[in-house]
Nucleic acid binder design. Structure first.
Lengths: 118, 118
DNA sequence: CAGGATCCAAAAGGATACTG
DNA sequence: CAGTATCCTTTTGGATCCTG
């Protein structure tokens, strides 16, 4: 087994900093968010990294981008695809595993996590 | 949500380079391997990284280390714990997800993966 | 509004040699 | 055998400013 293995690549991908956070943020509420909404919702992320990760997620087919350029300024929307939503189930399993085995590591205990719908 | 979130930390942890590979290697065969067995089974890994990851995995309680220092040279064994084995199920779900959504990304097609029991 | 460009700091990993 | 120590390269991310 090496890096060309699908599982390795998958874990590597979602293990990247910010990726999971973006995925989680997108799965809250309506499932669709705009670039600046994400930026506000994710404290500390820089525009460069956010757009980098969004491109990666789109390239993996986990999110879909929609551009409304009919007016100025342009508006962009990002939505979880079916694949992205299904991956979310795996994330939830990871949560269950974490809660079962890491008792001292409380989930989303900080204020910015209060609305986490996981 | 931020980095103190359990899920984020979990994904970050298993997304680290080599971690998953080690986990997979350990779940083959008897479930127990020695340091040098792992090193041989995982081409390209350096001793430094391997021992680093093994310590991290042990610290997370996913593997257990057993030292036999009765004779020289010392022998060490690493075994998946219950927690580690349960995490393996999540890895297998990731595999299913990958196969469903990433058709062109064949699983373990290279020679070193031939014996992958996933 | 949604990023791209630039520059810089930090972290992670690789190569290799050595040891209890 | 099972690592540690050292040094060095590469990668990644952060800060900030700019623009169609």
């Amino acid at each position: 087994m090496d890096e060309s293995c699908t599982i390795y690549k998958t874990a590597d991908f979602i293990g990247k900093r910010w990726t999971l956070i973006i995925l989680l943020e997108l799965s809250k509420g309506s499932g669709t968010k705009r670039y600046n909404e994400l930026k506000k919702a994710i404290p500390g992320i820089t525009p460069k990294i956010l757009s980098e990760r969004l491109k990666e997620l789109e390239h993996e087919g986990m999110i879909k981008k929609r551009i409304d350029s009919s007016k100025f300024p342009i508006k962009c929307e990002y939505t979880l695809t079916k694949s992205g939503k299904e991956f979310f189930k795996i994330i939830q399993d990871m949560k269950k595993w974490s809660l079962k085995w890491k008792f001292n590591n409380k989930l989303c205990a900080n204020s910015s996590c209060e609305n986490c719908k996981l």
